[in-house]
Design a protein around this nucleic acid. Structure first.
Length: 928
RNA sequence: GCUCGAGUGGUGGAAUUGGUAGACACGCAAGACUUAAAAUCUUGUGUCCAUUAGGACGUGCGGGUUCAAGUCCCGCCUCGAGUACCA
């Protein structure tokens, strides 16, 4: 009986489907456990061997939990809306739904072959109207809500309207785009249109003219996390800044709670750190600088209130509302020219030319609220409109950007802080500003002599007393732009009446994506939905032409899995109360500043409104590492069709060429396959070493162009799914990036065959002994139970695999085929190699699935030994071993060491200063 | 620049609270079985010295703490990730 993995895997995959082995229902008699993978976007390329890594890990953990008595929810679905399908549609005219369905089918086939324990009855697709019904529903709730800073939660916008009617904005402390002030009477006097326009300032989903990241090549706006270094993450196209009227989600309202929540979840420190940086909390002071000969007051934010006496000028962002107001007639031309010039630069250019200092004087002066001094107001593009107030007080002595600006335009520089261990010097001699926060304040009136932190505190106190400012916390986190000028996304549940946005009745949801003839913008430059016929609501009102961004559908999907067929709610109360939250979430770190922020925001919002029971959606999160490619190279002698083997290449002028890793084995090229691989190489000649052509190699990203893509289907064809699963885990720690190298796969495949053979007799027939297990056999088993159980809990799956190998090697040498040992071993192995385990489990005579077998219990007494083999070291260097009874008293051990024959050499002519005995660990003799 | 993480054989990687560095594999070498190959099995495999016995050196570099350091502390170097005129 050979280990016929193909037959075994096909058989059990069919049985699992037929028996609905992985179907999950609420079961209040068992504790729940929710394991979630970040669902994939089904791209046209299908899965490569790197994709399933996290899925395999979560699958192992799910099966482990099930064996330990948990009711495990482990669903899967697809993030089906996205740019690639739409771009393909633009190129070919093929409807993105068709592309998506094809890709999805391919994904499903590939996933099925790996033997995952997903409950496919719960599958969701974000492009399914049944699903995006609830994405639209959530949007409506956000539109109808505002965020109260005092209660620290979202509340219905109707409450805010009541407050406006009663007292206007008096005592108002809510999240908003702009601080507004009006009385109840003023509010009531406003027209409906004016009132609606004002409410947009407070809604959690709101429409606003805003500076957006516009990507001309993609014809759409992008969120901040979709842009890296001025380039779109998808496609790599340049991005520019542009003002557009767009939907936004007021994510910034939740900044503090998103930050605090990180302390309550079990995520890796690095991921938490990324989110903390992205939220970017900074505490400081907001201060008012009056403008000379004007009623205008400049608000500025600073974290260095201690340096106010060092302010020698002010700088406004070019886009600031104040810029035109403060520009004096004689400077108007220069300022306008400057603004035009900065507008022309793309975000990318601005970032690339960070060192280039530009700016222009407005002609106005501001009055320092502490010193009363007058300082010039400049415009400079190093000040960002979107952060703080879009204006800064410049302290060139103690801020390097202000310093550069001052030097460029010959503005004065004053020293107000002496860094620790330095003396006051003439700023004219400085190379750079002195930014250190450890030092003593000088030239600053009542702050003189204080340390920096003391001076910050005192200044804050002073400005509050004199009402020239206040303590203020700023966040870097911006509101999320929620409109995309695309076709293949969720339509908004929004229509326009008198140009004002209105929400579609919840009863009319979902608003289905209409059919259109072409997937391009209209001739008038409207988004693709502008092409839809009858794209109106209630026969009269035009519907929104934008669609929602990629992160919309993934923000609450984990809730939908709990209750995927519910047509009256996103998730029913009973299901939500049972499943609660995700206990284990596995996915890539690339979602740190996108999906994982939006999803937490979305969930907190639903929590505030009482729709869900948990404030944080993902209790524990693990980022699986990237599997990189391992590329192979051949070396062509320049100008010839001759290829030289790796270690001889230095004798020639060569060019390295990527070669398909699938025609290379252990870095040795199959030269015949190489000739057929590409017509160009049909007549290739080779210079061999030891009769072989050895290729070079390098670790690179796995991609088609590097010819290093390895497909899981091919691996499964050659070695089986269980081998693939085991090998992916054996490759290294889950969270670490590592290269895929098919070469090592033989090791785990051999291990599975060895395991199989444990159950066979000399005639290759299945035969199991009912005999009682020996002490040694039990020791091997229980050592393994302990190790596997502990390591699964630590997500250390690579060491699990090696523990299995050790176990099977040892049982092999003990020639153990006893039921008492192999039965529990099968259960241990089941999460890792479920097909093989099912087959063995049924051969062992069990009728149920091994998934429901009880996890073996570790019995410590099987590991107890009567003696311990001590490593004996002299001055820390291990020299020999000494077998002693475990309960031997120290003086006996000492004596045994002193008298041991091997000790004499190390003791000769030396005195023993000390003997350290660590029970059951080590003996160290200190000599000298 | 700032923040975080990582540097261990030819390769992937092991190593509780500091306690035998290199587990488990791959690869390589030698051998057994075979007409041959594949498969399987056995042995060896950090580097250097030594015929052996054995010894010296070894976890990026330099210091330190300790009976004992891959592990802790200080200072560097290199690589990776995130982020960036954030006031």
């Amino acid at each position: 009986m050979e280990y016929n993995f193909k037959a075994i895997e096909q058989k059990w995959q069919k049985q699992w489907v037929d028996n609905k082995t992985y179907k999950v229902e609420i079961d209040k008699n068992r504790p729940k456990f929710y394991v979630l993978d970040m669902f994939p976007y089904p791209s046209g390329a299908g899965l490569h061997v790197g994709h399933p890594l996290g899925y395999i890990a979560s699958d192992i953990y799910s099966r482990f939990k099930r064996s330990n008595g948990f009711n495990v929810l482990h669903p899967m679905g697809y993030d089906a809306y996205g740019l690639p399908a739409e771009q393909y549609a633009i190129q070919t005219g093929q409807h993105p739904q068709i592309t998506t369905d094809t890709n999805l089918k391919r994904y499903r086939e590939q996933l099925d072959k790996i033997g995952f324990c997903y409950d496919w009855d719960r599958e969701i697709r974000t492009c399914d109207p049944e699903y995006y019904h609830w994405t639209q529903w959530a949007f409506i709730q956000m539109f109808n809500s505002y965020y109260c800073n005092q209660a620290k939660k979202a509340a219905p916008i109707t409450e805010l309207v009541e407050a406006f009617n009663a007292v206007g904005t008096q005592g108002l402390d809510v999240a908003c785009t702009e601080e507004l002030e009006f009385t109840a009477d003023e509010w009531k006097a406003k027209s409906e249109t004016e009132q609606q326009e004002i409410l947009l300032n407070y809604r959690l989903a709101y429409l606003a003219d805003t500076m957006v990241n516009w990507c001309p090549a993609l014809g759409t706006v992008l969120a901040n996390d979709e842009v890296k270094e001025g380039i779109s993450v998808r496609g790599g196209h340049p991005v520019e800044q542009k003002v557009m009227r767009q939907w936004l989600l007021r994510v910034s309202a939740y900044s503090e709670r998103l930050l605090e929540g990180l302390d309550k979840v079990d995520w890796s420190d690095s991921l938490k750190e990324i989110q903390r940086n992205w939220i970017g909390k900074s505490e400081g002071a907001q201060m008012k600088f009056k403008v000379k000969d004007s009623d205008i007051v400049m608000d500025i934010f600073t974290t260095r209130a201690d340096t106010v006496f060092g302010v020698t000028f002010m700088v406004l962002a070019p886009e600031s509302d104040l810029t035109p107001l403060l520009t004096q007639p004689e400077q108007k031309e220069a300022v306008d020219a400057y603004i035009q010039q900065t507008k022309k630069r793309t975000e990318r250019e601005r970032q690339a030319e960070v060192d280039k200092v530009t700016g222009v004087f407005t002609g106005s002066y501001a009055i320092n609220p502490l010193s009363g001094e007058e300082v010039p107001i400049w415009v400079g593009d190093y000040v960002l409109a979107g952060y703080g107030t879009g204006a800064v007080m410049a302290v060139p002595g103690h801020d390097s950007r202000d310093f550069k600006f001052a030097r460029q335009f010959n503005l004065p520089i004053v020293q107000v802080v002496i860094p620790e261990g330095e003396e006051a010097t003439d700023p004219a001699t400085w190379e750079d500003s002195k930014d250190s926060k450890a030092g003593t304040v000088i030239n600053s009136d009542f702050l003189n002599g204080l340390s920096v932190p003391e001076a910050i505190a005192k200044t804050k106190e002073y400005i509050r007393e004199k009402k020239v400012g206040d303590v203020k916390v700023n966040y870097r986190l911006r509101d999320a732009i929620f409109s995309r000028q695309r076709y293949w996304g969720e339509p908004f549940p929004v229509y326009y009446k008198d140009n004002l946005p209105q929400m579609v009745d919840e009863a009319d949801l979902p608003v289905q994506l209409p059919e259109i003839d072409k997937f391009l913008p209209t001739e008038q430059g409207e988004p693709p939905l502008g092409r839809a016929k009858n794209w109106v609501y209630k026969d009269a009102y035009p519907l929104e032409l934008n669609t929602m961004p990629g992160f919309a559908g993934s923000s609450a999907y984990y809730l939908r899995y709990m209750d995927p067929k519910n047509d009256t709610a996103l998730v029913g109360k009973e299901a939500n109360e049972y499943w609660q939250d995700v206990d284990l979430y596995i996915g890539g770190t690339e979602h740190a500043t996108g999906h994982l922020i939006y999803s937490r925001f979305w969930n907190k919002f639903l929590y505030d409104l009482g729709y869900v029971v948990k404030e944080e959606p993902y209790k524990k999160l693990i980022n699986q590492g990237m599997i990189q490619g391992r590329s192979n190279f051949v070396y062509r002698i320049n100008g010839t069709n001759k290829f030289v083997s790796l270690n001889l290449k230095d004798q020639y002028e060569t060019t390295a060429i990527h070669v398909d890793v699938n025609i290379v084995s252990n870095d040795v090229l199959d030269t015949e396959k190489f000739k057929n691989w590409n017509p160009e190489y049909k007549n290739a000649e080779f210079i061999l070493e030891d009769g072989k052509y050895v290729c070079g190699w390098a670790v690179e990203k796995m991609s088609k162009s590097m010819f290093n893509v390895v497909n899981p289907d091919d691996i499964i064809e050659d070695f089986g799914a269980d081998t693939l699963r085991l090998y992916e885990m054996f490759l290294g720690p889950l969270e670490q990036s590592k290269p895929w190298d098919t070469n090592g796969i033989d090791g785990v495949h051999k291990f599975l065959r060895k395991t199989w053979r444990l159950f066979l007799n000399a005639n290759e027939e299945f035969e199991i002994s009912e005999e009682k297990a020996t002490k040694d056999e039990l020791k091997v088993l229980h050592k393994t139970i302990k190790k596997i159980t502990e390591d699964i809990e630590k997500f250390s799956f690579n060491t699990c695999v090696s523990a299995f190998m050790i176990c099977v090697n040892e049982l092999g040498s003990l020639k153990c085929n006893k039921l008492e040992i192999l039965d529990p071993l099968t259960v241990l192995l089941a999460p890792f190699a479920p097909h093989l385990a099912e087959e063995l489990w049924s051969l062992l005579g069990h009728e149920n699935t091994v998934c429901d077998a009880q996890w073996p219990e570790f019995v410590a007494s099987h590991l107890v030994e009567s003696t311990f083999s001590y490593p004996v070291s002299f001055n820390g260097k291990m020299r020999f071993k000494l077998e002693m009874p475990v309960d031997a008293p120290n003086n006996e051990i000492e004596e045994a060491v002193r008298n041991h024959q091997s000790s004499q050499k190390w003791l000769e002519g030396k005195t023993v200063r000390k003997i350290i005995i660590v029970p059951k660990k080590i003996i160290n003799v200190v000599v000298g």
